[in-house]
Amino acid sequence: MSRRARGFSLVELMTVVAIVGILAAIALPSYQASVRKSRRADARVALSDTAQRLERCLTQYGTYDNGNCTVAETFDSPQAYYSISANVARMSYTLTATAQGRQLKDRACARFTLDSRGAKAAFNEDGNAVADCW
């Protein structure tokens, strides 16, 4: 008489668990890095939107700091992954987005700047300029 085997052996099950563990160890950090990179759009959107409002102010009133079109000195980006600070003068401005909360783990692009000349810059957590964040 032959016995009919049913189910999986413990060795087969442990092999599958090991393979899934290895794949997860490789895929999870890559996924998290991709998510952090996609959150950078939150800073770019906030800086561009604020710059556009300031340019409208210059067009309408002749200065960036006119009382009819104020911009808060600090505020959060739309998804709150960045804190935006605005340094607005009569004929110039500098906007800075600094990572906060969960986005602090994005050490490669921790801070973005945009000024009234349209100059864009990004910096890592050490303050060094980075070329590929924008």
Rank of each mutant, 00 (worst) to 15 (best):
R53N: 13
I84T: 06
D49P: 05
D115N: 15
D106R: 01
L104P: 01
A122E: 01
F8P: 12
G101C: 10
S83Y: 06
A97I: 12
F75T: 03
V20N: 07
A86N: 02
P78H: 03
V17H: 05
I84H: 03
A97P: 06
V88Q: 01
D42H: 00
A122Y: 00
Y64Q: 02
V16D: 04
R90Q: 12
A122H: 03
A86F: 04
A110Q: 08
D49Q: 12
T94V: 11
G127L: 02
F112Y: 03
A110W: 01
A27W: 09
R39H: 15
D115Y: 09
A86W: 01
A99L: 02
D65E: 09
A129G: 12
R102Y: 05
V130E: 11
I22P: 00
C57L: 00
A18R: 06
A18P: 04
T74Y: 00
V16S: 08
R4P: 10
A99V: 00
F75C: 08
L95P: 00
S77F: 07
R40P: 04
S85L: 08
V11W: 05
C69I: 01
N128D: 15
D106W: 01
Y64S: 07
L54F: 07
N66M: 00
D115M: 04
R117N: 13
Q103G: 03
G62F: 05
D132G: 05
E55S: 06
R44Y: 03
S34W: 13
K37L: 10
R39E: 14
A108M: 10
A27Y: 10
T63F: 05
S77T: 06
T113N: 05
G101R: 05
G101A: 04
S85D: 02
I26E: 09
A110E: 06
R56Y: 15
D132P: 06
L23G: 07
Y64D: 01
D132L: 07
V45S: 15
M91L: 14
T96W: 10
Q52W: 13
K120A: 08
Y64W: 04
A33T: 11
N128L: 08
F8H: 12
